[in-house]
Simulated assay, not measured.
Amino acid sequence: MAVAIRLAGADDAAIALAIDPAAATSAHRADWLRRAFAGEQGRGAQMAYLDGRPAGFAVMGRFFSNPFLDLIVTDPRFRRRGVASALLDEIERKHAAEKLFVSTNVSNAIMRALLLARGYLPAGQVDHLDPGDPELFFVRLPR
């Protein structure tokens, strides 16, 4: 099981839409993904492949002039096989000299545990983005 990471472009949006379960039920999410993969507002995306099959993706943006992981998604069929970790490895390597921010909902215990295990520090909370499910922010300090 080898995970390969590559830069993504607008042509990869359809693959991302097929991977992301939320895009199937949210026109807003699907539109946001198309725009992100097209590089709108300076965003960049990466695709992850597991044994040659599309298995996940990550979208990067900026947060107060710092790199911010906007979204990371693993295809449900490939979870717990190192896809998200491989994407994070690549992102962390690329931004090792900068503060790297990421957020996740309180309800996403898997992502919270992954971030804490990788040395991210709690950086705050924003309420009222998703009703009843606060957004927790984390930071990885420069290495």
Results as ranks from 00 to 15, higher is better:
residue 7 L to W: 14
residue 8 A to T: 06
residue 8 A to P: 06
residue 9 G to R: 09
residue 9 G to F: 12
residue 9 G to S: 06
residue 10 A to R: 13
residue 11 D to C: 10
residue 12 D to Q: 09
residue 12 D to P: 08
residue 13 A to L: 00
residue 13 A to P: 04
residue 14 A to H: 11
residue 14 A to N: 11
residue 15 I to S: 03
residue 17 L to Q: 06
residue 18 A to T: 07
residue 20 D to N: 11
residue 21 P to L: 01
residue 21 P to E: 00
residue 22 A to K: 07
residue 23 A to L: 05
residue 24 A to E: 07
residue 24 A to C: 05
residue 25 T to D: 11
residue 25 T to S: 12
residue 25 T to V: 08
residue 27 A to Y: 08
residue 27 A to D: 08
residue 27 A to I: 01
residue 27 A to V: 01
residue 28 H to M: 13
residue 29 R to G: 04
residue 29 R to W: 14
residue 30 A to D: 06
residue 30 A to G: 05
residue 31 D to S: 14
residue 31 D to E: 15
residue 34 R to L: 07
residue 34 R to P: 03
residue 35 R to T: 02
residue 35 R to Q: 12
residue 35 R to M: 09
residue 36 A to V: 00
residue 37 F to P: 04
residue 37 F to E: 06
residue 39 G to A: 04
residue 40 E to Y: 06
residue 40 E to A: 05
residue 41 Q to F: 14
residue 41 Q to K: 14
residue 41 Q to E: 14
residue 43 R to C: 02
residue 44 G to K: 09
residue 44 G to D: 04
residue 45 A to I: 00
residue 46 Q to D: 07
residue 46 Q to L: 10
residue 46 Q to Y: 11
residue 47 M to N: 04
residue 48 A to I: 01
residue 48 A to P: 03
residue 50 L to Q: 06
residue 51 D to V: 00
residue 52 G to Y: 05
residue 53 R to S: 09
residue 54 P to N: 02
residue 55 A to V: 00
residue 55 A to F: 02
residue 56 G to E: 05
residue 56 G to S: 01
residue 57 F to M: 01
residue 57 F to P: 02
residue 58 A to S: 09
residue 60 M to D: 00
residue 60 M to P: 01
residue 61 G to S: 03
residue 61 G to Y: 04
residue 62 R to K: 05
residue 63 F to S: 00
residue 63 F to Y: 13
residue 63 F to V: 02
residue 64 F to I: 08
residue 64 F to L: 13
residue 65 S to P: 03
residue 69 L to M: 10
residue 70 D to N: 10
residue 70 D to K: 10
residue 71 L to R: 09
residue 71 L to M: 13
residue 75 D to V: 05
residue 76 P to G: 00
residue 77 R to G: 05
residue 78 F to T: 06
residue 78 F to V: 07
residue 79 R to N: 09
residue 79 R to Q: 15
residue 80 R to M: 13
residue 80 R to V: 08
residue 82 G to L: 13
residue 82 G to W: 13
residue 83 V to Y: 13
residue 83 V to Q: 11
residue 83 V to F: 14
residue 84 A to Y: 10
residue 84 A to Q: 06
residue 85 S to R: 15
residue 86 A to D: 10
residue 87 L to R: 09
residue 88 L to W: 13
residue 88 L to Y: 15
residue 88 L to N: 08
residue 89 D to M: 10
residue 91 I to S: 07
residue 92 E to T: 09
residue 92 E to G: 06
residue 93 R to C: 12
residue 93 R to Q: 15
residue 94 K to V: 11
residue 95 H to V: 00
residue 96 A to M: 13
residue 96 A to V: 11
residue 97 A to L: 14
residue 97 A to T: 11
residue 97 A to W: 14
residue 97 A to S: 15
residue 98 E to R: 10
residue 98 E to N: 10
residue 99 K to R: 15
residue 99 K to D: 13
residue 100 L to K: 06
residue 100 L to T: 01
residue 100 L to A: 01
residue 101 F to V: 02
residue 103 S to G: 01
residue 107 S to M: 07
residue 107 S to G: 05
residue 109 A to S: 12
residue 110 I to S: 15
residue 110 I to M: 15
residue 110 I to V: 15
residue 111 M to I: 04
residue 112 R to G: 04
residue 115 L to I: 01
residue 116 L to M: 03
residue 116 L to Q: 02
residue 116 L to G: 00
residue 117 A to N: 14
residue 117 A to M: 12
residue 119 G to Q: 05
residue 119 G to L: 04
